[in-house]
Design a protein around this nucleic acid. Sequence first.
DNA 1: TTTGTGACCGTAA
DNA 2: ATTACGGCCACAA
Length: 114
Amino acid sequence: MSVPDSITKILSVAMIIPVGRVATYGQIADLAGLPGRARLVSKALKKADHDMSIPWHRILRSDGKIAFAANSEQAQEQKQRLLSEGVAISGYRITLKQYQWQPELHDLLHRLKY
DNA sequence: TTTGTGACCGTAA
DNA sequence: ATTACGGCCACAA
């Protein structure tokens, strides 16, 4: 499978994360059928920045922290976006585990028709 | 061709 | 809680 195709798949999965919920880079990779390729997810998001259909701010590291360097412009904007959606954040880490996007995604994935 | 660099991750101290 | 390490691998130098 080509890298561009993988990117496309990753983005198609990323864009279905519900408002007010979050997912990790690794989860997105898994759901895109690319286990172990979390880094490719970050790369995909970077390539797709400015694409308003992709909720990049809802993607966090596996430990619940925002991936950007603390205090960076991007980290602060991401935090604001999450807060505005009602996601609780303390410092740069989500507070409540219940925000984890424990997929009811079989349905969501089904709609993607890979 | 080799090397360094990431919006990463799981495990083990 | 934090650090270290080995995996991961596309991409640029």
